[in-house]
Design a protein around this nucleic acid. Structure first.
Ligand code: FES
Ligand code: FES
Lengths: 157, 157
DNA sequence: TCATTGCGGATAACTTTTGTCCGTGATGAT
DNA sequence: ATCATCACGGACAAAAGTTATCCGCAATGA
């Protein structure tokens, strides 16, 4: 987890896409969020490679979710964009220096690395528990219907 | 959380210091772990500013924990070195672009940011649950006493 | 046929991390 | 008192990672 800024964009795009029936072009998503179109395109390509969204080239092409939004977790999106590597990287300092513990005694992971790994798991578990659909439901419940309609119109315009 | 590499160093140093009665010089800690002495010095200064370790200048000076190792959590060390900022930074994209939600409706945080914040809390909670003392106990229980003795001798040499 | 769109690589600007260096001041050993 | 040892802090430089742009290519549907 390196938590790049693109995660916020990707998450918001997925929420938008969850209420779209026709493909939405990357440029449109970029304009909607007022962010760099070329850079957002890259993030969308990552989502595409991860199999979260489906892309359609050609006129009236664009992006669409591959599954129901309730089957896409926040963790899916985060890992698609930031990669699956944990935030903490153990460099095995214990195997270095004059008091290095011999490699044959390093079959078990360093206790410190174990703690960090447990925390990383808790973090991922927390993100896995929430789906894009749940987030979309929250925004639908907390924003006036008029705004939602305007947004839907703007998207297909 | 940006999870810099110095965290691993700082954590290992704290574990070492937990079984030290006399001050240990930064240069000694660096040699022990075979890492850059000048850079490790910087991390130790961060621990010092956070009040986790106490520094003594002059000959036979060095670092010592300010409290019992069982009262220092892993989170304390991580936040001292990496800072307290959460990994995910919400840039409020929802307030930008043609469909921006008006600021007066942004009294509640974006649901996406809320999810990330919950996950960050879970991560920190997990790190807060483990103390340096607990880690030291684990290494003491899993490494042969002879090695531990040699290390203690080397430290005070 | 052709404009539109996504894909991928190359590239550059920018920021953060990582690491070094040196002068200063404090402390204890001699 | 003197001196070597050590922490401190700032300035600085190298390396890595990020954010962002551009271009040629291939695919698609109007
Ligand atoms: S050796 Fe990497 S965390 Fe201990
Ligand atoms: S506006 Fe920042 S996460 Fe939604």
């Amino acid at each position: 987890m390196k938590m790049t800024g693109g995660v916020e964009w990707g998450l918001h795009c997925c929420v938008v896409l969850s209420s779209a029936t026709e493909p939405v072009a990357a440029a449109k998503l970029a304009e909607l969020h007022d962010v760099s179109a070329t850079y957002l395109a890259k993030q969308l390509q990552l989502l595409s490679r991860a199999g979260l969204v489906r892309s359609a080239p050609g006129q009236s092409g664009g992006y669409l979710l591959t599954r129901p939004a309730t089957e896409i977790t926040v963790l899916d999106v985060v890992e698609a964009i930031d990669g699956p590597q944990p935030a903490f990287r153990c460099t095995e300092v214990r195997q270095r220096g004059p008091m290095a513990v011999p490699p044959d005694r390093c079959d078990t992971p360093c206790p410190i690395a174990a703690v960090m790994d447990t925390a990383d798991r808790a973090w991922r578990e927390s993100l896995r528990a929430v789906t894009i659909g749940a987030i979309a439901a929250t925004v639908a419940a907390t924003t006036p219907g008029e705004l939602l309609d305007r947004a839907r119109v703007w998207l297909s315009a």
